[in-house]
Computed example of a mutant assay.
Amino acid sequence: MTPVLCHLLDLTGFRNYHRLALEPPTGGCLFIGPNGAGKSNLLEAIGLVSAGRGSNPSAGVELIRISQEGERADFARVRARVAVGDRLPQLLEMVVAPGDGGRVSRRAWIEGRMRPRRDLIGRLPLVQFEPRDLELVGGQPAARRRFANWAIGQADGEYVAALGDFERSRRQRNALLRELALGPGKDPDRLDYWDDLLDTHGGVLVRARAGWLEQMSTRAQSHFARLARGPESVSLEYRPALAELAPGSLAEALRRTRQREIAVGNTLIGPHRDDFRIHVDGRLAAQFASRGQQRLAVLCVKLALLDWLTEKIGQTPVLSLDEVFSELDPHHRNQLAEILPADAQLFLAAADRGLVPDSLVERCQPCALADGDVKPL
């Protein structure tokens, strides 16, 4: 299996980094430093060029560096040169700049050409392990949808296209709903066109999600059986907003709820309301599992994604692990190190080098972080 490799990570004005250019070795890097040194920022930068957004979707202007004098930079830029299989290396770039009303603009470039941000997905296949992963258990459905969209999209270009088409159609339909709510004399049958479009594009999404979650559940249970110290089980349950997944079902449901949607000016049914749940021993993990069981279940979900993505793309994705080992006991640290693919390029962040298994330290280039600088050890 050929690994995906990031040959260059270049930051300008990103978080606490004024200017930084790294050329990671094949084995990857172990970033060591105290809390606040910028370890997580480096891993966030990798995620930004992989998904067109950071791991924190609400992060905006704070991505742009503030100098010691209190002045914010004009923009933040992250560039990565990535080699996937036998394809020529590509230069991927994300730029975040301040906009009007406290908002930010986000622009993507591939080989120097501006592209839609969604075009970045799949060009740097990545599996991230990070502290906020517990949102997959107890967070809002939107967090789980983002995870599913990014995970599936890394291996399925049709899914990415359908997601973009669905969201554009939904925005147009919502605008028409608000127009119809303004008064009598408007023809609600004009919604038929958009209902059918949402049904077509939404059908691609729900069928892909259903198949993905079924495969993920099987893989997660396999890892859980290996890592858990008891007979517990883990499973993933798809919770679609519309139970019927057959073609035409969404269009019919939208027509049934048309008057209510006109009243609120919003599309109330569809895959934009989907969810999935994680269960431990057949019970909802968010309510019944211990903190340790929740962490182990989420870890197994990420390992399942690693297996699934590797199989689908025929390459070993880049792996990013942010302070994961500090949350595990020595037994699980060593087991995780054994499971991670030997050929994967790793980017690890740790405040305590001693918590990282020796087998992983030997693979990576240790780097010390201080004052916005990275120095190989």
Rank of each mutant, 00 (worst) to 15 (best):
L8N: 02
L9H: 07
L9A: 03
D10K: 03
L11Q: 10
L11M: 11
F14V: 00
F14G: 00
N16P: 05
H18M: 06
A21K: 12
L22V: 11
E23A: 15
P24W: 13
P25Q: 11
T26Q: 14
G27S: 06
G27F: 06
G27C: 07
G28W: 11
L30S: 09
L30D: 08
F31K: 07
I32N: 01
P34Y: 02
P34W: 02
P34F: 06
P34M: 07
G36Q: 11
G36D: 11
G38S: 07
K39D: 06
S40I: 09
S40C: 03
N41G: 09
L42Y: 02
E44Y: 04
A45L: 06
A45Q: 04
G47D: 06
G47C: 06
L48H: 05
L48R: 03
V49L: 05
V49P: 04
A51Y: 13
G52P: 09
G52W: 10
R53W: 08
G54T: 10
N56E: 11
P57Q: 09
P57H: 09
A59F: 08
A59M: 12
A59V: 08
V61I: 15
L63H: 12
I64R: 09
R65E: 10
I66L: 09
S67Q: 07
S67G: 14
S67M: 02
S67C: 07
Q68P: 05
Q68S: 12
E69D: 13
E69T: 15
G70M: 14
G70T: 12
R72A: 08
R72S: 05
A73Q: 02
R77E: 11
V78D: 00
V78G: 00
V78E: 00
R79Q: 15
A80H: 10
A80L: 08
A80D: 09
V82K: 05
A83M: 10
A83W: 01
A83P: 04
V84H: 04
V84G: 01
R87S: 13
L88Q: 14
Q90P: 02
L91C: 07
L91A: 07
M94V: 15
M94N: 02
V95I: 13
V95S: 02
V96R: 10
A97R: 15
A97S: 15
A97L: 11
P98I: 03
P98F: 04
D100Q: 15
G102C: 05
R103I: 07
R103E: 14
S105C: 06
S105N: 14
R106L: 12
R107E: 01
R107A: 02
A108D: 07
A108Q: 02
